[in-house]
């Protein structure tokens, strides 16, 4: 539920880009991009990536083994306590990043790919193809993301792959719309029109121009969607539709702790893990947005 509207924020904000603001490369090193919050959010993301990469060396215990008494509150031996099977919550938390981060990247990459192809086709062929593709996108967006994802994940059976598939199915239309509008604007550029009149193939020039043209909005959108994907994935596995137990997944860990409120540490820490990384992605997305489109931050003065 919070998930759907934030997508729309991204779409509406991303689609506000003008062509001349879209070239991303090169200029990140200067100007207002490196503000304290941006640095902090990048720091958090890098930290989580490092934790994920070096989990086997960083985590104090094996995430799947019973390494202590059941349901011990946080202590010197187990900083975040143990769960109902005596597994170390901190170790599971660290290992959990190995699931959430790569899966979120996979979800966003696949959605971008599918949405990109559909959007490109819709914008390039126009007419019937465009109509069908965009009505299909409307159709998917007519459902609350979580309900549709839940139905898809349940129908295909609970597993990591199906959860990813479900989330790709519900999020490709957002990218398709951005890429499509970008194609349409490139199509109308004078040199493309001129080329068409001269009988030059337009597909090449469109593909060549669409990529830099939509890179800005797509980048902002992808960054924010990375956080969103982590949230949705956690939601699915909280409902038992994600990775199968005993996998250390943050949403599933929270579900485990929800059975007895007294064992607050079982649920608290995975939730904080999600909160920090999602917030970092949101902040980073905002920073990129501000950097690419300064009008969104500074008051217009005359």
């Amino acid at each position: 539920m919070t998930i759907l509207p934030s997508d729309r924020v991204a779409v509406s904000r991303a689609s506000r880009f003008r062509r001349d603001r879209l070239r991303v490369g090169g200029s990140l090193g200067t100007g207002s991009f490196w503000r304290p919050l941006t640095v902090v959010s990048l720091g958090i993301i890098v930290l989580w990536c490092l934790l994920a990469a070096f989990a086997p060396w960083v985590a104090p215990y094996d995430p799947l083994e019973t390494v202590g008494d059941n349901l011990q509150p946080p202590s010197g031996a187990h900083w975040m306590g143990t769960d109902d099977l005596g597994r170390d919550v901190l170790s599971r938390l660290i290992w959990g990043s190995r699931l959430s981060l790569p899966l979120a990247v996979a979800i966003v990459a696949c959605s971008l790919l599918v949405g990109g192809i559909v959007g490109l086709a819709a914008g390039y062929f126009g007419k019937a193809v465009d109509n069908v593709a965009m009505r299909l996108a409307d159709l998917v967006l007519a459902f609350p993301q979580i309900i549709l994802a839940m139905a898809v994940a349940a129908a295909f059976g609970p597993s990591v792959g199906n959860a990813v598939l479900a989330l790709v199915i519900v999020s490709w239309p957002l990218y398709a719309r951005i890429i499509r509008s970008s194609v349409l604007s490139v199509r109308e550029q004078e040199y493309v029109v001129a080329g068409r009149m001269l009988g030059l193939p337009t597909l090449r020039s469109i593909v060549k121009d669409v990529i830099p043209n939509s890179a800005g909005p797509a980048l902002v959108m992808s960054t924010i969607e990375l956080g969103n994907a982590i949230l949705m994935l956690a939601a699915l596995s909280f409902l038992g539709l994600g990775p199968r137990p005993p996998a250390a997944e943050w949403g599933a860990m929270i579900a485990l702790g929800s059975q007895n409120l007294g064992n607050w540490w079982v649920s608290l820490f995975p939730g904080l893990a999600i909160l920090t990384i999602v917030m970092a992605f949101n902040l980073l997305g905002d920073a990129i947005q501000d950097h690419l489109d300064p009008r969104s931050r500074n008051a217009r003065t005359r």
Binding site: T2, A234, G271, L275, V278, M279
Partner: peptide, 18 residues
């Protein structure tokens, strides 16, 4: 608002319940 947007809804519900 940013914290609210970044919080898993079910976790927020759990924390509130706790």
């Amino acid at each position: 608002a940013l914290v609210g947007l970044s919080t898993p809804p079910f976790w927020l519900a759990l924390v509130a319940l706790y």
